[in-house]
Amino acid sequence: MKFAFFGGIYNNYLALESAIKDSQKRGVEQLYCLGDIGAFGPHPDRVFPLLNQHQVQVVQGNYDNSIGNDLNDCQCGYTDPKDNHFAQISYEYTYEKTSSQNRAWLKELPTEIRFELMGKRFLLCHGSPRKTNEFLWESTTSTHFLKKQADDFGADIILGTHTGLHWKRNLSEGQQYINVGVLGRPENDGTKNVWYTLVTIEQDRVDVEFIPLEYDHQRLAKEMQSEKLPEEFVETILTGWWTTCLEVLPGRERRVGKF
């Protein structure tokens, strides 16, 4: 049995289209989105019909919670005024361009999804099982912390997103934590592709594969420009380097980037 997981669409409906096609080709039975549908990119309302049409199951991200509940910001918790400035531009843009019907839909999304398959308990969340906007970076998350989360929340396989970088860790007793990455923007490594996660379940094996995904990033960049979204964001799409909101990155993740 094959499933596809992705997070952080950030209005990037072009990457979403591409992920749906790619995963269908690989024989995926069900698609899951772990939240943050808006932010960053153009034309928020183009994402929703795709999710609907392909019956994607969706967990609520902090962004979705904010937009759905008419909050004033995205709850990313930036403290640098420059980061806040850019975050606010895309937040207000996304809020204005998301129809009231879609906003109402975002408000009702569940904060976690659970299911059991072949005796494995799956827990799908946005940040961490205990908190929607908790950053779980590979270099700042101890293995025993993840193990305790898994035990406390009664899960064998935890899947989350929120940071924008994919990674995974095997825990003891066959448990796993998987950060599925995001479709919305590249991973700050100078390549333009984005990532999603393919999970294959067979007998008692859970195999995880991270899939690099090409999409029409030139077109996305053009649409961002014509929507007058910040040039800094466009640059990220065109170069693969993050240009803003870098303060939340741990030193180790930060220094492999360009800025």
Binding site: Q75, G77, T79, N133, F135, W137, E247, V248
Partner: peptide
């Protein structure tokens, strides 16, 4: 704590 560990509500 460091900014990368913040869990603002």
């Amino acid at each position: 704590t460091n900014p990368s560990s913040s869990k603002k509500e």
